[in-house]
Structure formats: structure tokens, C-alpha cells
Design a protein around this nucleic acid. Structure first.
Lengths: 335, 335
DNA sequence: ATCTAAAATTAGAACGTTCTAACAAGGGTA
DNA sequence: TACCCTTGTTAGAACGTTCTAATTTTAGAT
């Protein structure tokens, strides 16, 4: 089995009758090269079937055009929307992206960050896991390349941040329900240990307080962040003494699960009970009834994250930036 | 602004009092290294904050652990399920993955393949766009690294293939509807120019033929492959003289759109009319009514693609393999 | 002590590109 | 003619690692 040697710029140059340096300038599209030389070299590349070795180039020039993108879960529509936003923007700007998924594991996240750094990415977009250990926090703050943290804020992290105002979003949702005349509003889903939960809870409590309504702790239900979790919660909700007339859920996924659970026991969503979600993932418009929700602009968020990253790569020394979107409520038939 | 020089293995070696070669062996976990030396070096790395340069390593050793993954659309749940399968399996096997999305553009696909090759990926998983130009076909067949083509088969492509038997799947769906007593079964969605459509159509026609039922061309509707497309089709379906009592859709996305469209005009899915989808994406179980569908095992498909790729990387010279899953029907309330 | 084989370490070339600085060719000016 | 400037091209070092082959150290046997 004879090893066929890899074609290098040297081979191309020899074939075209120029020096390797010249060939190198040609592949990089330098304007110091005559048209004829350029054509000669391009023809040689074509005829030999040359493939540029970007790794060698990157290693020599100490540059790269790859960025790392670490998200939580490709199964969660919010993150896929976000991913889509990031990825299309980055691609437009000419970057190639490494994908990493943590599945909310702190250790996995550390591992992925390390790996991205070893690959000499030129920047990183990071959706942190929900509960970060001190060790990981230190690692994140030690990252010395442009990095944008997205979706989950953490005040001790020094990098740029892109996210939405969860407190305002939750307030918006609960205000909407209050305006519809509801007084017993449940808050369903998520884990109270995560910052994302705490922010939403803050908005929930704030809205009740401003409307001078009591906060009933027995109307707070924690669940797994899946449709299944939402569906299972329905049973618990109707076990409680205090029956809610409206439900605000941690996100759309859970909202959808709750709606299904309710329908299964014969409760009509939008009529017997109101449900409001959070995230505005694409599917929510397509449920029956369509789910009222708080738009988190996942894709726009992704675009913005990519934009911030790109700008920081071009200008690494600017001060920390935070880009926080104001959520909007999308009223549909579920409430 | 003083440039701080990058830390290299040389620095680590000097600090630890060994040679660079030894340090190199340590980072690679060679068993020829004494425990003490290894510890010395590791301590040095930790204390200096050394970051391994995998690109330099890859370039010297002419190896790499990155693979390219080119899919059509992160917005399509089938592909995200598939992506999840591929990605988790690859990660498990120790690869780092580049993500590329074509949005079904032939040119974009060519561009992405070229870029992946330049990055010296060690293998590639490719979901081809629906209509491939000859130029792209040639490019794909010229790829000289392990490559697995997934989801869309193309008989002229020489690489390994992972997919499902679309003909059998469509037949399964239509048989199910026939068994339920339906005779006028519409086939809705997709573009007849794509192979994916033709295969499904073949199964659709075959099932009708075997049941000695006539095929009504006026019951075939092409649409965009989105929920919107499915919803819009509903109007057209009821404009036709021949009213179907059952609808087989190109995929779940369209099936979901069709269901919503039907419900909006007051038709009860599962009672007045039956709908069967294709793909079995996670959402379909969560619609109301839950959508009967053909399971394409998107995630399993992804796992299998990753497995085939891994095996071919380890053994490049084996003959072409095709792994074709037999679909299964998942009967739910929509039919 | 001496020899030998095995084990651990090392020097220096190599990977395929880019970078630096130097060189050659041509054209304008004095 | 000599000089300089500009434009295009090039030789050889450099990037940070691994590889090959050689060297040193260690351990066991005599």
C-alpha cells in the first residue's frame, strides 16, 4: 500500500515554475502578484488537485478563523434557534465553527472550553451551564481570547454578555395574566437553584406585589425542563388545595407539556385556564391552542452574540459590553 | 502594548528541567516516562498556565481529531435530532466537530466541503442538498477522506451511506390508512424534483396499487417543507373536486402544519380526517392530537452515521457500506 | 567492578505554511 | 551614465509540535 505523499505549495510552485513564496502569495490573493503569475499558479493548483492546508497556515501565522460555540442542548428548540442565529452570522463573517454541547454538565463544559482553547479558536461563544462550580468560573475568567457569554448571566464573569431581561419578561407575562383578571397564578417549571429560575421568579413576585396580590408558595412547582416535566406537573398542580386559574411556565417547552397534560384531563386551555410560556420558540405558534409566550428572540440573540464576538475579535481591548434585549409578549389563544 | 509571547512546550520543558521531547511525551501520556518526570512536567504546565497547541501537533503528526458535519438546516427538527445523534456519538469517540449548514444550497455545500478539507478534518458526515449539480457530485466523489453520506441517497456517490427505506416507510403509512378504510388518500408536501419526494411517492403509489386502489394525481400537492407550507396546502386540498379522507404528508413538519390548517377551518383531525406524517420528530408526540407518523429514527441514524464514520477512519480500505434502517409506524390519535 | 540489555531521555530534523528581508527588473529623473 | 524608487519575486528562517535515531541512565547478571 504505497503512501501517496501530500501535495504541498512546493509542488504547486514547482509545477507552475515559480517559488513557494509566490505561490503562497497567490493563494492568499495578494495584490502584488501579476495576473499571469496568479493564473499560472491557479491552473497548477487545479491540475494537481491541490488542497490548501489551513492548519499549517494558521500555525505559522498564529491566526485562525475558527470559533468555538458551546451550547447546552441541541434538543432544546430555544438553543437550536439561538444556534441558528449564531451560526449563520458567524458563517457570514467568514468563521468556521466548532460545536460543543454540555448537556448542562459543569465538567463537560470545562472539558469543552479546554479543548476549544487547544484548537486555538480565535473566539468563543459560551452558554454556561446552570450551576457553575468555582473551578469552572475561574477557568472561564482566565480565557484570554475574545469570549461572549450568552443567555445565562453571571455577575462574576468578566466577558461580554448577551441575553434578555428575564425579570422584565416574567413581569410582562404575569401582568398580562393579572390584566385578564387572574389572581391565582402558578409558576411552573425549572430548578430554583439556577439563576434563570431566580430571575423569572423575581419578575413573577414583583408583578404580584405591584398588583397587591399575595404570593402563594404552594403555587410554585419545580420540574425538569422538558415537555414531559410540564405534563407531569399538571397532576401536582391539581393536587394542591389552591387551584390556579392561570399558569406561567418557565419556558415554552414546559408550557407545551402543561397544555397537553391539561387537555388530557379534559381542561380546555385558553378557556378553563390560561397558560403563558417563555422563549417564543417556533413551535409555540403551531400548538393548539397557540401558546401565549414571552419572546426571547433566540435567533436575534444569536446574531447579536456573533456580532459582539466579531467586534471584540477586531478590537480586543474595548471594555466589557452587555447587550440585554427587552422581551416582548406574544399574545395568542392560550390565555 | 507589549505582545506577550505564547508559552510553548519549550518553556514548560525548561521550567521543569527536562527536554522538549520529554515534555512532548508527557503531554501525550507516553508510558515510557517515569512517574516523577511526568509529575514535574505536569506541575510546570499547571504553574505556567500552559495551553497545548493541538494545531501544531496535528500539523506535525499529519493527524487530527476533528470531523466535519454538514447538515441542511438547524431549524428542521429532523436535522436537529440527527445532529444530536451524530454529535453525541462523535464526542464520545473523542472527536471535535466542525458544523456547517447548507440551507439546501448546492454552492454553499461545495464551499463547506472545501473548507472542511482545508481544515484537514479526519472525516466528514454529509447530508447532501436535495438537488446536486454534477460539479458538486464530482467534488463529493473526489473527497479522499472517510466520508459518510446521510439521509439522502444518491446512487452515484461512492461513500458510505446511512438512511432509511423511504419507499417502505411511505408504504407503511399508506397501508395503515387503507387498513383504516380510507380510499382517497392525499400525498402532501415537498418538491417532486427531490429524491426524497420520489421515494416517498414510490411507496405511496405502490401501496395503492397493491390494494388495487386508483392513484388520483389531483390528490398530490407539492409545498414548501415547513409548517407554513402544510397549513397553506389545506386550502388547496379543499379546492379540489376530489376530497381526501386521509392525508399522508411528506414529513412531520408539514403534517403539523396541515393539522393546524384543518383545525382552523373546523375539521377535527383524527375524527373527520386522518393525518399521517413522516420522521417522528420529538414534537409530533406532543401535538393535539398526537401525530401518527413514520419513525425515521433521526437520532439513531445520527449515531449510526457517526459509528460508520469512526469505523471507516480506523479502517479506510473496507468496501462501501450502506446502512438502511427499516422504518416503523407510530400510531397515534391523528389517524 | 564490569558488561549488557532495557528503559528513559534527548538533539535535531521535519510537518506545510507565512514572514522578513533581500534581490532583480524596469522606469523615471538628474 | 548613474541613481533611486517601485513592483514583483524569492531564499531561508520561523511557527510549536512530533518523529527518528542516538545517547544517557538504570538495573540486573557476572
Amino acid at each position: 500500500m504505497q503512501e501517496k505523499k501530500r501535495l504541498t505549495l512546493n509542488d504547486v510552485a514547482r509545477y507552475a515554475g515559480v517559488s513557494r513564496s509566490t505561490a503562497s502569495l497567490v493563494v492568499r490573493g495578494s495584490d502584488k502578484i501579476t495576473k499571469e503569475t496568479s493564473e499560472k499558479v491557479h491552473r497548477a493548483m487545479r491540475e494537481l488537485g491541490y488542497v490548501y492546508d489551513r492548519m499549517a497556515a494558521n500555525m505559522r501565522s498564529q491566526k485562525s478563523n475558527t470559533v468555538g460555540m458551546i451550547i447546552t442542548d441541541v434538543g432544546n428548540p430555544f438553543y437550536t434557534d439561538f444556534l441558528k442565529g449564531v451560526h449563520t452570522s458567524l458563517e457570514e463573517a467568514g468563521y468556521t465553527t466548532f460545536l460543543g454541547t454540555t448537556y448542562d454538565s459543569d465538567e463537560k463544559q470545562r472539558e469543552l472550553i479546554a479543548r476549544m482553547l487547544e484548537h486555538r479558536v480565535v473566539g468563543m461563544i459560551l452558554c454556561p451551564v446552570s450551576t457553575i462550580s468555582q473551578e469552572t468560573l475561574d477557568l472561564i475568567n482566565m480565557i484570554d481570547i475574545p469570549t461572549v457569554v450568552a443567555v445565562r448571566e453571571h455577575k462574576e464573569i468578566v466577558h461580554d454578555y448577551v441575553g434578555i431581561d428575564y425579570v422584565a419578561g416574567a413581569e410582562l407575562a404575569v401582568n398580562h395574566l393579572i390584566a385578564r383578571g387572574h389572581e391565582n397564578i402558578a409558576f411552573v417549571g425549572g430548578a430554583s437553584s439556577s439563576i434563570a429560575w431566580q430571575k423569572r421568579f423575581e419578575g413573577y413576585a414583583l408583578a404580584l406585589q405591584k398588583a397587591k396580590l399575595p404570593l402563594h408558595p404552594e403555587l410554585i412547582f419545580e420540574t425538569a425542563i422538558t415537555r414531559e416535566g410540564g405534563k407531569l406537573a399538571v397532576g401536582k398542580i391539581f393536587m394542591a388545595q389552591k387551584r390556579p386559574t392561570a399558569i406561567f411556565t418557565f419556558n415554552d417547552l414546559i408550557g407545551q407539556g402543561v397544555m397537553i397534560g391539561l387537555q388530557e384531563i379534559g381542561i380546555q386551555v385558553g378557556k378553563d385556564i390560561a397558560v403563558v410560556g417563555f422563549d417564543n420558540t417556533a413551535e409555540s405558534a403551531w400548538y393548539s391552542p397557540p401558546l401565549t409566550t414571552i419572546s426571547a428572540f433566540a435567533m436575534k440573540l444569536g446574531n447579536e452574540a456573533a456580532k459582539l464576538l466579531h467586534e471584540r475579535i477586531l478590537q480586543p481591548l474595548q471594555e466589557q459590553r452587555k447587550s440585554i434585549f427587552q422581551p416582548e409578549i406574544v399574545v395568542r389563544q392560550s390565555s
